[in-house]
Amino acid sequence: MRRGKTDALLSVRGVSRRFGGVQALEEVSFEVRPGLIKGIIGPNGAGKSTLFNLIAGDFPPNVGEIWFNSHVITGLAPHAVAALGIARTFQTTRLFEHMTVLENVMVGRHVRSRTGFTGSILKTPGARAEERAVQARAGEILDLFGLDRYAAHSAGDLAFGIKRKVEFARAVASEPALLLLDEPAAGLNIAETRELSSLIATVKNLGITVLLVEHDMSLVMNISDEILVLNEGRKLIEGAPRDIQRNPDVISVYLGEDECSSSAT
């Protein structure tokens, strides 16, 4: 296990997590370098979601440490992890359904603003100025995502694909250093998936590092700079998409042993 500083943005070190009798993750270590897109793949039950939830602070690992920007973040609550610059989306979209799209994205600016109870109640000049800035920045994010025409819509009334996009925009609004995307293409059609892939590229150009779990292989292979393969709670392999595609272990995990030998020829 490496110790001390590395140039990685996120460093997961020897992390294990058990749920009752199920070992969901075992001794998983990997790093995410800044500025890149890293994909996590693996069959169902490989521990991808558990890994995501550990990083986001939903629950702590039984063993191991997670470092982010030279902070240990293991054991921190989700809001504290978010405050350090990690934003996320959820496998099933979790929008604030009774709020407008603009308001949803404005909540995304929470960590980038500071007005508290007193400032809000007294409506201080600082609070007003900050509120205007939050609204303006949220408007820009909506433009960037092509969501400006939905700004005043209630989030609960939107079509599924648009909801996904709003959740993505809301996470980006916090201008995180690291963005965790949990199966962002799930349930999207081909056109929407193509749009998603170009949005992820846009986000990368904003300087945001992306870690994503995804089942859509062509999406992951096309946009990822690096790929981590999990299988049965363990790290199988890590590398460039091209190498992962050719790796016999990966093929056998996905296709089963028998097909492996025939497809290798």
Partner: peptide
């Protein structure tokens, strides 16, 4: 004043979806 502010928005977010609110840095 409170409900039309950053704090009011955070409260409505908690009402709407507590885990999502937490993931956006709301304590």
């Amino acid at each position: 004043n409170l409900v039309r502010s950053r704090v009011g928005r955070a409260l409505r977010a908690i009402h709407g979806n507590e885990s999502a609110a937490g993931s956006l840095g709301i304590n």
